[in-house]
């Protein structure tokens, strides 16, 4: 604790060593107001996100994409928006997909309702599990799963069943004999499961990443070295995907289509929270400079 000799602190001293709880309170108030009453904000799409969107959007009907969805409730704020936008795009493009998960055994139970709900939406071509997409479910062993998939995709998922038969016998896996037959592997994750893909995936299969913003720093190098076809970063990335969806299926031509969900919703509280942070940093600096000037503690 800083012991100040004089009984009365001036405002700069108070601000310099402000009790952190005041900052916390302001953050809670700002976020609460904007979560309840969100404001619509404009968007400028990130090129790395657009790169993945354009690649996936350019796929033809009936192409196959392998998805690894590793997010849990702990990164729901970012990953859910990304996942929903990805599902909408693939369904509208009629791209077949298979989803597996490495993070947690409960993930299939979390994402299946989301997929089914999106499949009911207009424009989603009434996607059916076992017909247009399959859930390969949970794999406990990250290492073995990724190498297994790379070595022999059919063998790796053949034990997983849909409606009493192996998922590799469903129409989804028709003509898919090797992972390189998949047009892309998309990993949606909030943890470092992506590293194994970099290590194991052979060069011919393309890899796309949807990650939390925190992971972008360490993964952008892989985008630069082209080990990734594109990278969708955090809630902003989800908002980018939603914006691109809305560009391809604009609201006036396709009035019933849902393009925007949590990506846009979380953008305005996020903006004001970040503004608060910048303001706090500025105030802290002014306080420090003022104190230095008045010869207080530096």
């Amino acid at each position: 604790m800083i012991q100040e000799p004089q009984t009365e602190k001036n405002i700069w001293q108070t601000l310099y060593a402000i009790d952190r709880r005041w900052l916390y309170l302001i953050l809670i108030i700002v976020v609460s107001i904007l979560v309840v009453n969100p404001i619509t904000v404009p968007n400028v799409v990130d090129p790395a996100a657009k790169s993945l969107y354009d690649y996936l959007s350019g796929l033809e009907e009936g192409d196959f994409v392998y998805i690894e969805s590793d997010w849990t409730n702990s990164t729901r704020g970012e990953s859910r928006g990304q996942f929903e936008a990805l599902m909408r795009l693939l369904m509208r493009k009629k791209v077949r997909f298979c989803i597996s998960t490495l993070g947690d055994p409960q993930i299939p139970d979390i994402i299946r309702p989301i997929i089914n709900q999106i499949a009911q939406e207009p424009g989603s071509n009434n996607y059916q599990e076992g017909q247009d997409w399959v859930m390969a479910g949970y794999f406990p062993n990250l290492e073995a799963h990724v190498s297994g998939l790379v070595n022999n995709i059919r063998n790796a998922v053949k034990d997983k069943q849909f409606a009493g038969k192996s998922i590799v016998d469903t129409p989804v896996f028709e003509g898919i004999n090797d992972l390189s037959d998949a047009k892309c592997v998309v990993v949606i994750t909030g943890s470092s499961t992506i590293n194994l893909w970099y290590e194991r995936l052979r060069a011919k299969t393309k890899l796309g990443l949807m990650c939390t913003a925190v992971m972008s720093g360490e993964n952008i190098p892989y985008y630069v070295s082209r080990q990734l076809v594109g990278i969708v970063i955090g809630a902003k990335g989800a908002f980018d995907f939603e914006t691109l969806l809305a560009e391809e299926w604009p609201a006036d031509e396709y009035p019933d289509y849902t393009n925007y969900t949590s990506g846009r919703r979380y953008m305005s509280p996020l903006f004001f929270a970040l503004m608060l942070l910048i303001l706090a940093v500025v105030v802290g600096n002014i306080a420090m400079i003022q104190l230095k000037k008045s010869g207080g503690r530096s």
Partner: peptide, 14 residues
């Protein structure tokens, strides 16, 4: 032959 990834819109090969 050796499977260098080529991305859309990029020159080929890198």
């Amino acid at each position: 032959e050796y499977g260098t990834p080529v991305l859309p819109g990029q020159e080929y090969p890198q």
